[in-house]
Amino acid sequence: MFYDWVFKGLRKGVVSTAYPYNEQELPNYRGLPAVGPGSCPDGCRECEQACLPGAVQVRDATPVIDTALCLFCGECQSVCPRGRITLTNAFETAITSRQTTAAKVVPRDGRLFAKSLYIRHVDAACCGACLRETASLNNPFYDVSRLGIFFTASPRHADVLLVTGPVSWGMRDPLREAYEAMPGPKFVVAAGACAAGGGPFGQPATVGGVDVVMPVDVYIPGCPPHPLALIDGLRLLGGRARKEV
């Protein structure tokens, strides 16, 4: 029976993806919404009203999407009379600031963690999907330990606080405690729409997204974000470009 397990593993071989050192595509993934050319009908706010978390806003006859809040549910796509909004397959959603989504700024001291990054994951009030995707990072397919990324149970050993779920009132203080217990330099990653912007829950039932409680370095939108999207966000912290070794 011992040999069974050994041989099974050997026969299966290496199944880990090489991402982020190669390009990956997810053909069926409901990813980042893109706004097509054209203009909205006068006074049409269908997408804005259909969006539960309030990610879409119509400004200057154009829908503007706050990707941090977006659930990638596709409601806006289905109600738009002109079909301007389409959900693409793009999964690399990580951003470092909600104001200027194009910016991908490497945090200060980020290069220190290029080869080794320890993550303390805290479940704020996650439904469970983002948590499972985070846990999937350690399965043989994604295997982040090949990138020098590890999970630790003690915040004292951690460099990154990875939060999933909106911050409930009950978890606001424990989350803060976990942050205080980490020695500097430290970073905060808000993974998932709920952590990034409060999701469909919002105030006053919850405190809101993680950035209401503490400064966030990387937001990874998605509901839940694909493990590859999580890897994309984490490599941002270490300042690693895609083709670097």
Partner: peptide, 10 residues
């Protein structure tokens, strides 16, 4: 001086 880490309890 830091607090003892006790899982986030007060």
């Amino acid at each position: 001086p830091g607090k003892v880490w006790d899982g986030g309890r007060p």
